[in-house]
Design a protein around this nucleic acid. Structure first.
Length: 136
DNA sequence: GCCAACGTTGGC
DNA sequence: GCCAACGTTGGC
């Protein structure tokens, strides 16, 4: 079991859209580092869903239901998509500020390399983020 | 809306 | 194969 964090702009595809749809295919990634992470995802992996832009923060937990396959939104065979389904919302959401304020999360890629849209998490980091929701 | 960070592209 | 220029992302 592996743990990941993916970003989305709520204006493009929000957590609420994901709940409404029941599942989604995660495509449109045009960054090789992110693509490499997507290819490493396995069915059943847990994926945190992060909103960028307004109200930045982790808003839900997803499960990977289909491993990497060619991205249907492009002819470019270098890129892949995966399918996700929502498991549960994180309520209250864990804001970026809260994550940055947690010393044990200072090294995660979300903080260190803000532009990366798909990144791996250690189980401890995953658990810490979930715990921050309970704390606030 | 601005600006900094970073990844990708293309010329040499 | 290197490096400068450019485009995009995302926080503030």
């Amino acid at each position: 079991m592996n743990y990941w964090l993916v970003k989305s702009e709520p204006g493009t595809y929000s957590w609420d859209d994901l709940i409404r749809d029941g599942s989604t295919f995660w495509d449109g990634v045009r960054n090789f580092a992110a693509r490499n992470h997507m290819q490493a995802m396995k069915k059943g992996d847990q994926v945190l869903y992060y909103h960028s832009g307004k109200d930045k923060g982790v808003v839900g937990v997803c499960e990977l239901i289909r491993e990497a396959y060619p991205d249907p939104s492009t002819d470019d065979e270098r890129f892949v998509a995966v399918d996700l389904k929502p498991l549960r919302a994180i309520d209250p959401p864990v804001s970026l500020t809260a994550i940055k304020g947690e010393p044990s999360l200072a090294q995660i890629m979300l903080v260190r390399q803000g532009r990366l849209s798909v990144m791996p998490l250690e189980k401890a980091e995953f658990d810490t983020i979930l715990a921050l929701s309970q704390k606030s």
